[in-house]
Amino acid sequence: QVASGNGDRDPLPPGWEIKIDPQTGWPFFVDHNSRTTTWNDPRVPSEGP
């Protein structure tokens, strides 16, 4: 069983990049398509309500 969020081996969607926040050391994700950033890994399906 693979733990949720453990998709580091999967490629990011086109136009996405991983960067590290220098203050926290946490990775965040840059979507160059929409010029936005998020803490949520785009490779992990979001949980519904």
Rank of each mutant, 00 (worst) to 15 (best):
Q1W: 14
Q1E: 14
Q1M: 15
A3Y: 11
A3W: 01
A3C: 03
S4L: 12
S4Y: 10
S4H: 14
G5M: 12
G5A: 15
G5V: 15
G5H: 15
N6V: 14
N6H: 12
N6C: 12
G7P: 15
D8P: 12
R9P: 08
R9Y: 08
D10W: 06
D10V: 08
P11R: 14
L12S: 04
L12V: 12
P13D: 02
P13S: 00
P13H: 13
P13I: 03
P14I: 02
P14Y: 08
P14H: 01
G15T: 02
G15C: 01
G15P: 11
W16H: 07
W16F: 14
W16T: 07
E17W: 00
E17F: 01
E17L: 00
E17M: 02
I18M: 13
I18Q: 08
K19H: 02
K19V: 08
K19W: 01
I20E: 08
I20W: 12
D21L: 02
Q23M: 08
T24N: 13
T24I: 11
G25W: 02
G25E: 13
G25P: 08
P27S: 15
F28I: 02
F28A: 09
V30Q: 03
V30M: 11
V30L: 02
V30H: 10
D31F: 00
D31C: 03
D31K: 00
D31V: 01
N33I: 06
S34D: 04
R35M: 06
R35K: 11
T36K: 06
W39M: 09
N40Q: 09
D41L: 00
D41G: 03
D41C: 05
P42A: 02
P42K: 11
P42W: 01
P42Y: 01
R43A: 06
R43V: 02
V44F: 07
V44E: 04
V44R: 10
P45N: 11
P45F: 11
S46G: 11
S46K: 10
E47Y: 06
E47R: 10
E47M: 09
E47L: 05
G48M: 14
G48I: 12
G48D: 13
G48C: 09
